[in-house]
Amino acid sequence: MRNLLRFIIRFNFQILFMLLEIIVLILLTRVNPIPRSKVFSMIEETNSFIADQYHRLSDFMGLVTKNRELILENSRLRDRLTVLQSDWADQKMMKETDTVQYRYLPAGVVNQSVNKPYNYLTLNRGAKDGIQPDMAVIGPDGIVGMVRNVSPHYCTVLSLLNPEFRTSARLTGTGFFGTIQWDHLNYREVLLLEIPAHAPVQIGDTVTTSGYSTIFPPGEMIGVVSEFHTISGGVFYQIRVKLSQDFKKIKWVYIIKNRFKAEQNELEQQLSND
């Protein structure tokens, strides 16, 4: 007992220091809920941090090999691409020989504008490849526009970045659909209009084509919701959609032919004739 007392007096500075720091740790872990969870995840986090750094290092060390592999793969794919392109042209794939509704024809972009108020593209496919006005055009990452005029070897495309272009689009997951339209502001964003204000919209929701037109097949990617607010007295949303397709990077696109379009239009025409 006496020894203990002597110990406490001898080391009162150290003991008091530890006591106070224990009080601090209790405060840090009890008073704020956030640091408490942090304390328990600290070891885990440190571990994953080290693992992450290690992976980055090993990735970096392997870059030379990786690069060589990618160059080889690239050249292999380029070879196959040229073969396929000539195949497509030769076979006249647009011939209506089977029951597939949508046919995809690859096309190269030979000219395009992005920064003008009304933007167009020119593609290296024309009437000789079976291209007709109002065919849909999509890029690798999302929809691009629709064919406006056709010459024997070329066609012009009304870009999505053109206020004259409109198409029906669906908010994936909710089922609500509205109209896509460009508002001149930004070549990375379009507006999605006519979504009712009771629809559950969230930033990051994907927007795809609805299929309610005879041009675009359903489910083609357009972009993701980046911002939204209500207009028209709170009845509708005005949604800004960040395009998934970067229009400044387009080199190749696909022209889509809806082979049942004439049939659908004819049938719907009968309704208005009645």
Binding site: F17, E21, I23, V24, L27, L28, V31, N32, P35
Partner: peptide
């Protein structure tokens, strides 16, 4: 931002020590 309650106390006690 929400401060961590006790961080100044902990650091200053360490300083005194």
């Amino acid at each position: 931002a929400a401060p961590s309650m006790g961080m100044h106390a902990g650091a200053t006690v360490l300083l005194a020590f």
